[in-house]
Design a protein around this nucleic acid. Structure first.
Lengths: 342, 342
DNA sequence: AGTAAATATGTAATCGATTACACGAAAATA
DNA sequence: TATTTTCGTGTAATCGATTACATATTTACT
């Protein structure tokens, strides 16, 4: 078992004090050049490694940042985390992962745990806006720990966010469906308490109105992000007096379910019915009948969130600047809605 | 900005020493019951939070564990990490994520960084067996930090691992293809320096031999795990004198590419040609022509790796027990290879 | 040579919690 | 009552690094 070498060990060996060793290693200009070289050489020879915990305790900075997501095993969140890790790694930060599983209680708990662990910042996607975890959020802000929301945001003074323009995503997609000749476009909506879903819906609605189409409440079906939910939604929609001829789904999984159900009923896609999803999950482009979807550039979102964090950290004296970064959504048009190319 | 409350603050308020406060909070039996209650009540009232960094420095334990994976944005690794996090969270551990991007240099760097950060354990999937990062691994073991490999393992004395029986996975799949009537089965192989791919290949070979079929070198095409690689492989295979009538791919992505290329050539699947992949990526079951694949139960693998870690941590005095957990692969038979059900 | 200025290093406190050891007071025993 | 236990708490060292302040040594200048 290798001994743990401290600056005291180096000091002892060289008959100097730990203070001098510390200064030499930190390039303090007051240290004689010859001493510095000697210390550095000796430190290397003894295989000295700085104890990060001691440093963290002294400085109050752990060089860890916390990331809270509903779950990690979703392509979107995993990609965001990848972006965060890649951007922050060069700066010496380590990424701590926490999952909420959409539970506000877990979210609350994670926030406190991360603060306890003295992270230097928290990047997160909120779980639920209705529940009041404001205590936990306030606690973070009071501790002066930079807090940055990505994708699923929440309005809190002084908190920056990185999101995509979901409204535009919904608008573009709906507009595209209209352009393809669809006349009655339904929408599979997500949890309206989350802005992202609210905005996708609003974009959908606005696109309808801007293009002389009627918005009908009955065409909006709330779904969970699952294949089955998509199937059920189609079942409901097709029973309407005037069934729709297109679906803009706020979830790729629901879009997939919808497609499966439509096929089951021998409805031809995209000829008779067009479908578009949201998130650009990998499978959407792999399908034989590839699915039109909105890309949220998760990698870029993660990197951007990390950059916003880097801007805010260490600026405790400055008045905190609330930065709202909004990325542009990118509509990937594929077979499930491409009548023109057929 | 909320003050940071320490045990000294509590001590001062109650006119006792920090030692007593510490003991009271830690349920030390030597503390008078009345004192303990008073301390606990006061701590709560003052909103005291234990400083984890100080504790970590004193105890040498950070309550963090490091996870190193090639990349996080792959369904498999993300699911493993999910399993790890869920299993370790109740025990108070936080999970630090590192990516190698298949670079041995990054792997090396990550290992040292995690040790520097005083993690209490490292769970990882190795990147490459050929490169000698042995120094870094030895460093981990010398520091007495539990090291556990999952999926991609490496033979190092005293290191436990959690893997699936890749040999069996390859064997079962190949056997299945044989049962479906395939006579010439090709294999898209992965990096043979990694045991997982080696074993999938060996399982494939053994199944052929056990069932009176001939093994041909030319039927084994090394591929990267990508759609394009699968397409190219098919291109090569179909130019052979005796082209195969089935493919067992060590990668789902390559299997997908193969299927796309076969369709391109109007070869009917599974009638004329069967295809099976490995990993059970989400898209394999979503496809209209769903793809037969081997499930590696990543969630379970992560949980198991975490459990092995929990068993090993804190047992520094005991002789380290090398534990090799091998999970059973599960073949999911789908349309891409199901002649019987058609 | 004598003093000021510059340079290099040492001393000791600090970050916050834990804990071996010491000690005084109360309770138990002789 | 004297002595030993037991109990509860205080003292101070420790984990490893940083740093304000003090001090010693050189160098520069009159």
């Amino acid at each position: 078992m290798s001994e743990k070498i401290t600056i005291y060990d180096i000091a002892e060996k060289l008959n100097i004090t730990a203070a001098t060793v510390s200064r030499a290693l930190n390039n303090n200009p007051k240290i004689k050049e010859s001493t510095r070289e000697l210390v550095i050489k000796t430190a290397a020879a003894m295989n000295y490694k700085q104890n990060k915990l001691a440093l963290a305790l002294k400085s109050g900075r752990s060089n860890n940042i916390g990331v809270i997501v509903p779950r990690i095993d979703s392509n979107f969140f995993a990609s965001v985390i990848r972006g965060i890790e890649e951007e922050l790694h060069p700066h010496g930060y380590q990424v701590i992962i926490c999952q909420t599983h959409e539970s506000p209680k877990r979210e609350n708990e994670n926030l406190y745990t991360l603060i306890d662990a003295q992270v230097d910042g928290i990047l997160m996607s909120v779980t639920d806006v209705t529940t009041e975890n404001d205590g936990a959020f306030r606690n973070v802000l009071e501790k002066n720990v930079p807090l940055i929301f990505f994708d699923r945001s929440k309005h809190i003074d002084g908190v920056s966010s990185v999101t995509i323009n979901d409204f535009k995503g919904g608008y573009l997609t709906t507009k595209h469906l209209i352009n393809e000749g669809c006349r009655c476009i339904a929408h599979l909506s997500g949890d309206q308490s989350l802005e992202i879903f609210k905005n996708r819906f609003l974009g959908y609605k606005q696109a309808l109105l801007d293009n002389g189409m009627i918005f009908k409440e009955e065409y909006v079906i709330p779904v969970k992000s699952s294949v089955d939910a998509g199937k059920e939604a189609v079942d409901i929609l097709l029973q309407l007096e005037t069934p729709p001829d297109a679906i803009f789904s706020s979830s790729d999984f629901a879009a997939l379910g919808a497609i499966q159900e439509l096929k089951e009923r021998n409805i031809s896609i995209p000829k008779e019915f067009c479908v578009a999803g949201f998130s650009n999950e990998p499978f959407t482009k792999f399908m034989e009948l590839s699915i039109t979807s909105v890309d949220q550039s998760p990698l870029e979102m993660g990197k951007m969130a990390a950059r916003v964090f880097l801007e805010q950290v260490d600026k405790t004296d400055t008045i905190k600047i609330e930065k709202k970064v909004v990325l542009a959504p990118e509509l990937h048009i594929r077979k499930s809605s491409s009548r023109s190319t057929i």
